[in-house]
Design a protein around this nucleic acid. Structure first.
Lengths: 205, 205
DNA sequence: TAGATTGTTAATCGATTAACAATC
DNA sequence: TAGATTGTTAATCGATTAACAATC
């Protein structure tokens, strides 16, 4: 029960607001109303105002929200004004694609280590990160206290890798493996499985 | 307002149940209780029973649910007893990884066409799929009426590609681009942006 | 000032959970 | 039969929306 008062759904929407505000900023926009944001994002303006009001009053009545100011406020609420270290486990095709993805470091997430168990991949350097043997993972990650892990291993290995990472101080896991992981209370977990999304589609099609 | 009565959250959980039931089946389990499923998935048993009860009574009181029977029932509810054709747009690193991913066809989703705008990639065959010029997309996809698209293009191109796909009859889009797309009523949309997940983590860390 | 838009309250809506009779 | 577990109802909990006074 951490930061109890604010609903999880609200926290999950803040990054979406940030994404849009970033775009507005690049376009040179100075201010934006909740109404306009709502249209862009396909939600109600009341929801946007309510969400923001959990953290204070960022707007000016009759005017709207200052784009840069709101953006900075939200970034600060989410602790995005720092570099977050990330460890990636599983350097198959998907893991390689994520290692090469510029979007992480551009948004302040730095993949600092990568591990695999395939001798053909161990030792290679991908996007500046040297791939190491997963058998060394505990030795190498435990001392560094890396807070976030990305899991791109086969389903069968995911739980074991998660356990090891958590043991070494990882506090949040982005899981691409198609399994439901068991993690202790207090460990954040998000699952990205495209098949689950597709299987939801097919109900409606 | 299609199939109104059943909450979207319930539909979204069915694939997770299917995932676990598949695993139980592979392990040779014959039946399972809502209690046991709940423990595996980290939810309440009441939720599982309630979810299933929207579609009928699949269990036996005092016994639980027959694994194979429930699995088949859920697959049928989600229309998973058929092959679903998929078009993939954007064959960069991520697109290539998804093209090579066995999990889609294994679960009944067949990527039948792929498009890109990079001359170095157009013409290549990846995982049995020939990459075609995106300028031909409308000509090639419109007649085939493919229901599902996966978008792995840069943020700047995503909306334009979505519009074209929808124009050609696509009814559901799995969007990997880091933008909020605008789609007409009735088009299903799911977004997979790992950065949004990471940015939710950092609030709690 | 007049018009616009916020921040907030109260009402509505929807989802989760507890509890238990039914029954295998 | 006794024990276990479902299916379902009612109660609780939480999230969304409508509406409007405050105010820029």
């Amino acid at each position: 029960m951490e930061k109890t008062s604010i609903p999880k759904v609200v926290i999950a929407r803040l990054p979406v607001y940030i994404q849009k505000l970033n775009q507005l900023m690049r376009e040179g926009r100075e201010s934006v109303s909740s109404q306009e944001m709502a249209e862009y994002l396909g939600v109600t303006s009341a929801q946007i105002r309510k969400d923001l009001s959990f953290f204070g009053g960022f707007g000016k009545k009759g005017v709207g929200y200052d784009v840069i100011n709101l953006l900075e406020s939200l970034r600060s609420i989410l602790n995005l004004n720092q570099i977050w270290e990330v460890v990636l486990v599983g350097v198959g095709k998907l893991g390689q694609a994520l290692l090469s993805y510029q979007g992480f470091s551009r948004k302040g997430f730095e993949i600092v280590m990568a591990f695999d168990n395939d001798p053909n991949i161990i030792g290679q350097t991908i996007a500046g990160v040297k791939v190491r043997d997963v058998s060394e993972m505990q030795n190498l990650t435990c001392p560094r206290n890396i807070p976030i892990a990305i899991l791109t291993v086969p389903a069968g290995n995911a739980q074991e890798m998660a356990d090891q990472l958590i043991h070494c101080g990882v506090k949040a896991i982005l899981n691409y493996a198609p399994v439901t992981l068991k993690v202790p209370e207090g460990i954040r977990l998000a699952n990205i499985d495209p098949v689950l999304s597709l299987q939801t589609f097919t109900y409606y099609l």
